[in-house]
Design a protein around this nucleic acid. Structure first.
Length: 216
DNA sequence: CTAGTGATTCCCT
DNA sequence: GGGAATCACTAGC
């Protein structure tokens, strides 16, 4: 059991701020996942901000639907989506309520429960790959749509909570275009809202958006 | 290390 | 109908 540097829970006021403020502030902090099999803790190293219906890259861009409704709710809740037919990715909703902004958790370092995480990530070559990528992170933590809407700021025994951890000094925070979002990474760099910790080995490799050719 | 490609299903148009 | 906030695998440098 690795001692967490600061296991104080993050209060809802942490998330009830503009998403571009919250996203870099999440780097270095700890997500604690509790399951019947045990606990897994992840030190976040890479995130992306999505800022509501005005952001073309956001799932909220075309308004509220059954899938994204949690984004339109109060901050401090988890938005989980299913994509590419196989994978889940998790976000934390930010404030103010109704803006539909959220932070996608893209990568992290497993600092507790690596053995348990590995049972769900058998293809990972080493521990650094356990949560190197948003779907890998969700898989390692056993996160799926059943956790959509979960409140990470609730009291008592809850499946997921954010802990204070060790916030990253501003001079160690990097930012750039978001991964896999059309229009970013080229000339545009429209929204350089991907944030990561400089030189951290668990940050996922950057991939610009490439349109897929139709089968046939 | 990078680049290319198939997998697989849900959701919105 | 067709794209999707991705991954694992392969080939090649």
């Amino acid at each position: 059991m690795i001692a967490l540097s600061d296991a104080t829970p993050l209060p809802r006021t942490f998330f009830d701020r503009p998403v571009l403020e919250v996203a870099p502030d999440l780097l270095g902090r700890t997500l604690l996942r509790t399951t019947p099999e045990g606990q897994i803790a992840v030190r976040l190293t890479e995130v992306e901000a999505y800022d509501g219906p005005a952001d073309p890259g956001s799932h909220a861009y075309r308004g509220r639907t059954a899938r994204n409704s949690v984004m339109f709710g109060p901050p401090g809740h988890v938005y989980v989506y299913f994509t590419y037919g196989m994978w889940h990715c998790m976000n934390l909703v930010c404030g103010p309520e109704g803006r539909a902004s959220a932070v996608l958790l893209r990568a992290g370092e497993i600092v507790e429960g690596a053995e348990l995480a590995r049972t769900r990530r058998l293809s990972a070559r080493g521990d650094k790959e356990l949560a190197k990528g948003p779907a890998r992170l969700a898989t390692a933590l056993n996160v799926d749509r059943s956790l959509d809407g979960a409140d990470v700021c609730a009291s008592g025994d809850i499946p997921m909570r954010m802990l204070n951890g060790a916030p990253t000094p501003a001079d160690q925070v990097r930012n750039g275009p978001r991964t896999g979002v059309a229009g970013e990474g080229g000339d545009g760099d429209v929204h350089p809202w991907r944030f990561w910790i400089a030189d951290d080995p668990t940050v996922s490799p950057y991939r610009s958006h490439t349109p897929r050719r139709r089968r046939g």
